[in-house]
Design a protein around this nucleic acid. Structure first.
Lengths: 171, 171
DNA sequence: AAGTTAATTGCGAATGACTTTCATTATCAG
DNA sequence: CTGATAATGAAAGTCATTCGCAATTAACTT
């Protein structure tokens, strides 16, 4: 269906540009990252990490499995899920689940951001709004909570889809 | 595990009180609501709707199933899921899915709000912040999207759990 | 009130996304 | 290099939710 819409990810460029000046984290070799987790460096982990870091963002476990399987057909689902979970637990990747759909992940070596998703074509736009972040902290504090995280996903219809809908209606 | 923490739902009472002055929608008989959906009024739908409207908020399909089954043991899961989906599609209930956990629903006859969840004990606090809502609209507009919905879930540690943690650490 | 019929139900099987189990294999500390 | 131990892959297991379908029932129609 949705052909990994994340591939053509529009770059958020308003308000507070998401320009990332070659995050240093992306210089660190895969091997080192795995070692830091105090787990064994295996071929499959290296391959998975390569896909995770250098492939398209907002990928599913299935995406990773397929990408790795292309070069290393013996890979198993379990291995992908297990390692993604480890990476997620250690904040190397961010896991986002919405609707009943499979979880999507993204390498966390990038600046924090939230998502604006087109409900029609599933295109994802990343954005950051420090004002919203600030207000979230404020709300948590009001209730005596210490904020540990949040999920903010906006849904809407992108300009392109709106245009298409209008065209269809006119017909 | 989490014993339906939603039952003892703390009432949001800061900033913009969530006081709901007997929403008129809650006067409407179940039968009428079902009729408005242009579907048949069946015993099971009436019972489900009763639980949904008068039971605790933030319930799961399982919760509804059990509540209905207590008086009407022949009820089937499919019936509950089917009707909850219908209600959700028609905005009578709001469906929230997070983590890998079962979906939670709530009667939408109340004022819009978001959630602040304790990552430790799963307690849920409802809050509303019009400033955040306004900023969301602004972000969508920036990217040319027309906003149709959003999910904002804050996670943190509630005062009680923080106290417990501190006590445990000191031990 | 009885008949008609299309919507609805409940059951069990099916699905889909993970997760677990476990026998086999590979890593790496010494 | 080698053994102790962690990691892998294949398959079976979970779990929430959905589907298929025969039996039932609500809501006309007469």
């Amino acid at each position: 269906m949705t052909p990994l819409s994340a591939r053509a990810l529009p770059v958020a460029n308003h308000q507070e540009p998401l320009q990332r000046s070659v995050p240093r984290a992306d210089r660190v070799p895969n091997k080192k990252i795995i070692r830091e987790l105090n787990i064994k460096v295996t071929t499959q982990r290296l391959m998975i990490l390569d896909v995770v870091r250098n492939g398209p963002s907002h990928f599913t476990a299935q995406d990773v499995f397929e990408a790795v399987a292309a070069r290393h057909p013996e890979i198993g689902f379990a291995t992908v899920y297990r390692f993604l979970r480890t990476l997620s637990e250690h904040k190397y990747v961010t896991e986002v689940r919405m609707g009943g759909m499979p979880a999507r992940y993204e390498w966390a070596g990038k600046r924090h951001h939230d998502h604006l998703t087109c409900a029609s074509c599933s295109k994802i736009v990343e954005f950051e709004n420090t004002e919203i972040e600030r207000l979230q902290e404020k709300v948590a504090k009001q209730f005596g909570f210490s904020l540990t995280g949040h999920v903010l996903e906006l849904y809407g219809i992108c300009p392109e889809c709106r245009a298409k809908e209008n065209a269809a209606d006119r017909r």
